[in-house]
């Protein structure tokens, strides 16, 4: 509801409220009971010496939340998982970011973290694919690899002692992203999975769910194809190469709008859900631009409520 401003009519409002209420009733009761706000006391047993994690502090012997979120308990550890907050990086996360500055031997990237991330020239593969020391010439040619405002996919390598974040892009699958859309959603909507790169074959589209809440929807690129992009390419074929068919563009827009609707509703973004939403829009003959309208918004909420209810039924039936 944050990003899309809808003017719902009376029926739509009632339907939306019903769907959201449904979601509230389905949700496990523990979830809402564990919700805390700033300065709430978190009940703990005094006997077991607990470990205070993120979002908690000690005030007069009580454990007090310093954030709004949900209390999580893992053995002795008690911490508050935030919902709407900036991205908290973990080593190995796959992220999408935008270059904002080129500094000596490094690029600075905006990744929705409290600081800019750093991608060193030495921690990425050269375009020719040869392993060697980076020379001064490489340093001067950095702009030929990434320029300002380029969108890049990379992996979190680690933290420096001063808290700044280092990235790496040591594989063909990382690097510059072209011909597509970058969407920014809240980082809590993307869950860490095994797979963050998705090739949706039926649409010929690549979908990258960055852990930092940056989502890339773009034309599918064959990995390894652009290794010798620098040399010997006649201008004509380059033009053909640069053309994205209309069909693919439409698919990109449709999937991007699906992500927009889902993130506005605050649903966790998974590939399955995104595809399902896009499919639903096709099957009910919703135009791409109408996907951001009030009617589809309400429909999506209803569909999700139904899906979760079915899931719950299946679970309880299976037992």
């Amino acid at each position: 509801m944050r990003d899309l401003q809808h003017s719902l009519n009376q029926t739509q409002r009632v339907r939306l409220d019903a769907a959201l209420n449904e979601l509230q009733t389905i949700a496990p009761s523990g979830a809402s009971a564990a919700a805390v706000t700033v300065a709430d006391t978190i009940p703990v047993n005094d006997e077991d010496n607990i470990l205070k994690g993120h979002g908690t502090s000690d005030q007069d012997g009580e454990v007090v939340a310093t954030l709004c979120g949900v209390v999580e308990r893992v053995n002795k550890l008690v911490y508050v998982r935030t919902l709407r907050a900036r991205y908290k990086p973990e080593v190995g996360d796959i992220i999408v970011g935008r270059v904002i500055e080129i500094a000596p031997k490094r690029w600075r990237l905006e990744i929705n973290f409290s600081q800019d991330a750093v991608l060193m020239l030495s921690s990425m593969n050269l375009p020719d694919g040869i392993q060697r020391r980076r020379t001064a010439v490489d340093e001067l040619n950095m702009r030929s690899i990434f320029e300002e405002n380029d969108v890049i996919c990379a992996e979190v390598r680690g933290f420096q002692h001063d808290g700044s974040l280092h990235l790496q892009a040591r594989s063909q699958k990382y690097g510059k992203l072209e011909r597509g859309q970058l969407l920014t959603v809240h980082a809590y909507l993307v869950k860490r999975r095994k797979q963050h790169f998705h090739h949706l074959e039926q649409y010929d589209v690549d979908l990258i769910l960055g852990c930092n809440g940056f989502i890339w929807v773009g034309e599918h690129v064959v990995v390894g194809e652009n290794t010798n992009m620098m040399e010997d390419k006649p201008s004509l074929s380059a033009e053909v190469e640069n053309f994205t068919p209309l069909e693919t563009r439409k698919h990109i827009c449709r999937l991007a709008n699906a992500v927009r609707v889902l993130s506005a509703l605050g649903f966790t973004l998974t590939v399955e859900l995104i595809i399902e939403t896009a499919e639903a829009s096709i099957s009910s003959n919703v135009e791409i631009n109408d996907m951001l309208g009030a009617e589809f918004y309400v429909q999506t909420a209803e569909r999700e409520a139904k899906r979760r209810a079915d899931l719950l039924k299946k679970k309880s039936g299976g037992r």
Partner: peptide, 17 residues
């Protein structure tokens, strides 16, 4: 204020699923 924040947090958590 605490009421408002708590309600907002619960809503977000429920929608997230």
């Amino acid at each position: 204020i605490r009421e408002v924040l708590l309600e907002n947090t619960k809503r977000l958590e429920c929608q997230r699923g």
